[in-house]
Every structure is written in C-alpha cells, then in structure tokens.
Amino acid sequence: MCKDLIEKINERDLILYDDPIFSDINKVLEKTLKLTSKLNLGYKKPEEIREILKEITGREISNSVQVLTPFNTDFGANIKIGEGVFINKGCMIVDLGGVEIEDNVLIGPSVNLLSVNHPTDIKNRRGVILKKVRIKKNAWIGASVTVCPGVTIGENSIIGAGSVVTKDVKDNSVYAGVPARFIKNI
C-alpha cells in the first residue's frame, strides 16, 4: 500500500483536506508516530536506529548513516537517505512532499526540513501544498536551519546556523541569514 500511496502523493502538488487520500496518509502517520516514539525512547545503538528508520522510510538505510536521537518525522515514508549521511539531534523532517538527502550530507542539530505548506485561501487552508526538498551531495546544513518546501540545497554547499532557506542554493556556495542569502563561493 505504501509504495502505491507515495506514487499517488508524488503525482500531486496539492491535496485538499476532504480528499479521501488523507485516510491512507493518516494510517501511515499513525504507524510513523509509534515508530518515532520507539526510536526516541531511551538509548539505541546505531544499528537499532537504522533498523527503525528502515521501518519508517520503507527503504534500506546504509551502515554508513548515523542519526542521533531525538529524530522526528510526520509521514516518514517519503524520505530518501543516501550513503555517509550524518543527522544530529533534534532533526524534524516533514516529508509528505518528499525529502531526498544525498550522499555525505551533514545535518546539524535542530534542523527542520519541510516539504509541505498550506494554501493561503481560508477555505482550503487545511489542505497541503507538496514541494520536494532535495539536499545534494556533500552539503552541510548548520544548526537550527529551516529548509522550506521546494528548496534544493546545492552540492558541496554550506548553510549557516539559524538560517531560513526559502530559495534554491547554488552548488559550491555558502548561504546564511533570514531569509538565507548568498555569502560566497567555496
């Protein structure tokens, strides 16, 4: 069911609140809530963390991936994590719209990766706008960064601590601030 559901979700840009697909989404949300509670309860060895993440995402998690808890996600099944990724404590991934973390990415503590927004129209505000987030190879996301829906962080780039990234980041560059802006090339 989950692969078919993700395909249906990934074909859309918007899901309205009364759409019947939310019934299936909510089933995955409930499963993920149970698994993230299990993940974040007490100490877990790295291999235990990866095994629970495999259950959450429905994908293999490489032995080269290190995730420190607490770690949270709402949907979970639309996250892709590459090789050699490090995710520090307190990361929150809102992934209904899709979040892809490529190889050798470093994610600092308390980072938020958000692939969902809401319509501004009051009557449809409970719906969700879906926009994939992509963190390309070797990127480094500093502490307490928020990456907004639809943003791609370029290969080898660095995002300064506390930034809010609202637009795509070029490869091989440093961005920082609120909203994040170009600082320099690497």
Rank of each mutant, 00 (worst) to 15 (best):
K3C: 00
L5P: 01
I6G: 03
K8D: 15
E11S: 13
D13C: 06
D13W: 12
Y17D: 13
Y17F: 09
D19H: 00
D19F: 05
S23H: 10
D24E: 03
N26S: 08
N26A: 01
K27M: 13
K27I: 15
L29T: 14
L29Q: 10
L29I: 06
L29V: 15
E30A: 12
E30W: 14
E30G: 04
T32K: 05
L35M: 10
K38V: 00
K38F: 02
L39C: 06
N40L: 08
N40D: 13
L41D: 13
K44D: 10
K45Q: 14
E47F: 01
E48D: 09
R50W: 14
R50M: 09
E51S: 12
I52R: 02
E55F: 09
G58M: 09
G58Y: 05
R59K: 15
E60K: 13
E60Q: 06
N63F: 05
S64F: 08
Q66S: 07
T69W: 12
T69Q: 07
T69G: 02
P70I: 14
P70E: 11
F71H: 05
N72Q: 07
N72Y: 15
N72F: 15
F75I: 12
A77V: 03
A77C: 06
I79S: 02
K80A: 00
G82N: 07
G82C: 04
E83F: 11
V85E: 08
F86C: 02
I87G: 06
V94C: 02
D95W: 04
D95A: 02
D95L: 01
L96K: 01
G97S: 06
D103T: 08
N104P: 04
V105D: 06
L106K: 13
G108R: 12
P109G: 05
S110T: 07
V111E: 09
N112I: 15
N112L: 12
N112V: 00
V116T: 14
V116L: 04
H118A: 03
P119S: 10
P119I: 12
T120H: 13
T120D: 11
T120S: 10
T120W: 10
N124C: 04
N124H: 13
R126F: 11
V128H: 03
K132G: 00
K132P: 00
K132R: 15
V133Q: 02
I135L: 07
K136L: 11
K136R: 13
N138H: 14
A139Q: 02
A139P: 01
W140D: 08
G142E: 07
A143I: 09
S144M: 02
S144T: 07
V145T: 06
T146C: 02
T146W: 01
V147L: 06
V147R: 02
C148Y: 04
C148P: 01
C148W: 14
T152I: 08
I153Q: 08
G154C: 04
E155F: 09
S157V: 11
I158Q: 14
A161S: 06
S163F: 04
D168I: 03
N172V: 10
S173C: 15
V174W: 09
V178R: 02
F182T: 13
F182W: 09
I183N: 11
I183S: 02
K184W: 07
I186P: 00
